[in-house]
């Protein structure tokens, strides 16, 4: 069994998630044209998720867009910053009034999880932000994370100069720093996506259950035809599920009795044992969801479940 999860609320630094600030009169219009969600009606304090996909509907990045009034803060998936920025640079027309700044060195993103974080957020920004909204405190901005999730999780963003003050406040309120293994336990058990694992350029947003990040009535956007076709057919080739495993599963694609399975992440959880995220055929869930697959140390018995793990 892996390391025990520390008790109490935790913070995890999301350093590999890109932070990009867009400004200019056409910033929203640009994102409206090249990403999946309807951002046109966003106004200051709104937060919305949207996907950057290619013309084949494949995921390039999952973005949390924070409308700050005169600027948009884009927070991307892990390790996808170069892809996002190259895409933005290519997408800007001579007609577009859009400027972009790499804010990775200026802004810090932390995710807070665990029982009691709501109280901490109230201390940081005065009250709990409404769903789909951010709130600003003296030292940071706060909103629910890009991932679907339970109540006890928040993203906070602050300028690098406020780091000590914010970390000190978190410490005062009993929020501990989570190490990578603890973060992966939280992430995988909640079914949260990670750039380079679940968001990898081969998968379509609907296969990752990102329905709330796609608008089917906003008009054309890059990759729209593919998503519209999948939606109208009502059929997905594969879907992201959780796997409860008897031992460590092998990452990557393998053929099993349940068909092709792509294991994207796995971790040994202190309460749940070995768990994984995987793309499987939807029919797998219609059966009993049990099958065997290859593990790093031999055969592994697995049971597929709907996310998050309980």
């Amino acid at each position: 069994m892996g390391d025990s999860r520390p008790t109490g609320p935790l913070w995890f630094e999301r350093a590999s998630c890109s932070r990009t600030v867009l400004s200019g009169a056409d910033a929203v219009d640009l994102l409206q044209r090249i990403t999946t969600n309807d951002l046109e009606e966003m106004s200051a304090t709104d937060v919305r998720n949207t996907c950057l996909i290619d013309a084949n509907g494949r995921m390039l990045d999952l973005l949390s867009v924070w409308h700050l009034g005169t600027e948009l803060l884009l927070m991307g998936s892990e390790n996808q910053g170069e892809v996002l920025r190259a895409h933005l640079a290519d997408a800007v027309s001579w007609k577009d009034d859009v400027q972009a700044a790499d804010a990775d060195g200026v802004l810090t993103l932390l995710t807070l999880v665990g029982e009691g974080v709501d109280d901490v957020v109230c201390h940081l920004v005065g009250e709990l932000p409404e769903s789909g909204r951010w709130l600003m405190g003296e030292t940071c901005w706060c909103a629910r994370p890009v991932h679907k999730g339970e109540a006890d999780c928040w993203d906070i963003v602050f300028q690098a100069g406020n780091r000590q003050e914010v970390l000190s406040l978190l410490s005062t309120h009993g929020v501990s720093r989570a190490d990578e293994h603890t973060w992966q336990q939280e992430r995988v058990s909640r079914g949260w996506l990670e750039g380079g694992r679940e968001v990898d350029g081969t998968v379509i947003p609907l296969e990752l259950d990102l329905w709330d990040s796609v608008s089917f009535d906003k008009g054309c956007f890059t990759g729209q035809e593919i998503l519209a076709r999948m939606e109208s057919r009502g059929k997905l080739a594969r879907t992201l599920v959780g796997l409860s495993c008897s031992a460590e599963p092998t990452l990557g694609r393998q053929h099993t009795e349940a068909g092709s399975v792509v294991v994207t992440s796995s971790v040994e959880h202190s309460r749940l044992g070995w768990i994984a995220l995987a793309l499987v055929r939807p029919s797998t869930m219609e059966d009993d969801g049990k099958f065997s697959m290859q593990g790093d140390a031999g055969e592994v018995e697995v049971e597929a479940c709907i996310l998050p793990f309980r």
Partner: peptide, 13 residues
């Protein structure tokens, strides 16, 4: 939101 730090301007197009 960038404050005095300013961030790094990205080449656009």
């Amino acid at each position: 939101i960038l404050g005095d730090g300013g961030g790094i301007s990205l080449p656009m197009g």
